[in-house]
């Protein structure tokens, strides 16, 4: 049976991993390659690396980091942050990344999803969606959520569910859904929103933002219908260890890779 995936996310700046609370107050959580190897050993199913500075001058640093990660780990990994065009994607895939995630770029030019899916295959195109609660988007009893870009600073006027459907129909292979409301707060994932997105698209959905305890993962895999769950600081700072989390979820009848 297909296992639900646990994905540590490593925010990278200048080759090192950082993670802040609500995207400010960055704290250094260590060397990216070393962390990647440790996570691979401890049973992470996949890894995600986000280049959070994403300035032009640091892009080559990130690429050589991607190359080094590919040399050292034997599980799939996704990279994102600052991807502007097909050349950026080609460079990252050539460096050994398995998937790339795009966010602001896809919102600015949705056609980019079609092009990347056509050239590189849907399986390597992850559409990242940062969602924020917006009552103006409420639909009857259903809470409205708006798509945000630029690290969660800029609203787009797009409804999260419609945008997820569009990304799916344009050829995205996966949706990485982050609730900006829940990110860094450790009060649980946006379970209802995750379920709605998961039911609206025919591709896997990775839930992100809000993991604080093991029960939160159980919730998002069952009620939230997520295919994978992503978290950062709770893993980096050992508040939850992955082997322990997997045992807990297995005891609750969630299929996990052993």
């Amino acid at each position: 049976m297909l296992a639900k995936r646990i994905i540590p996310c490593l925010d990278v700046r200048d080759g090192r991993t950082v993670k802040g609370v609500n995207f400010v107050n960055l704290r250094d959580a260590g060397d990216a390659v070393e962390l990647a190897q440790a996570y691979s050993r401890y049973g992470a199913d996949e890894l995600t690396f986000l280049d959070i500075t994403a300035t032009v001058e640091n892009r080559s640093t990130f690429r050589s980091l991607v190359r080094s990660i590919a040399d050292h780990i034997s599980i799939p990994f996704t990279v994102g942050g600052g991807i502007r065009n097909e050349a950026d994607v080609a460079a990252l895939l050539d460096s050994g990344a398995d998937k790339i995630s795009i966010n602001s770029q896809a919102v600015a030019r949705p056609q980019a999803i079609d092009e990347l899916a056509l050239h590189f295959g849907s399986q390597c195109v992850v559409c990242a969606i940062d969602a924020r609660r917006n009552p103006a988007f409420d639909n009857g009893a259903e809470e409205g959520w708006e798509v945000y870009v630029h690290g969660g600073r800029t609203g787009t006027g797009l409804d999260v569910i419609s945008w997820a459907k569009e990304a799916y129909s344009r050829g995205a292979g996966e949706i990485l859904l982050t609730s900006m409301e829940h990110d860094g707060v450790k009060g649980g994932f946006a379970v209802d929103l995750t379920r709605r997105v998961s039911e609206a698209v025919g591709i896997p959905v990775i839930a992100s933002g809000g993991a604080g305890k093991m029960e939160h993962f159980y919730e998002v895999f069952t009620k939230g219908k997520a295919d994978a769950a992503l978290a950062a600081s709770i893993f980096h700072f050992h508040e939850i260890d992955i082997p322990e989390l997997k045992i807990f979820l297995e005891q609750h009848d969630i299929t996990m890779r052993r």
Binding site: M1, L2, A3, K4, R5, D45, S122, Q123, G173, E174, G202, I203, P204, D227, A228, R257
Partner: peptide, 13 residues
């Protein structure tokens, strides 16, 4: 069935 996402993506035995 519609609840099974395609591609089959992830770890299986």
């Amino acid at each position: 069935p519609p609840e099974f996402k395609i591609p089959h993506m992830g770890w299986n035995t």
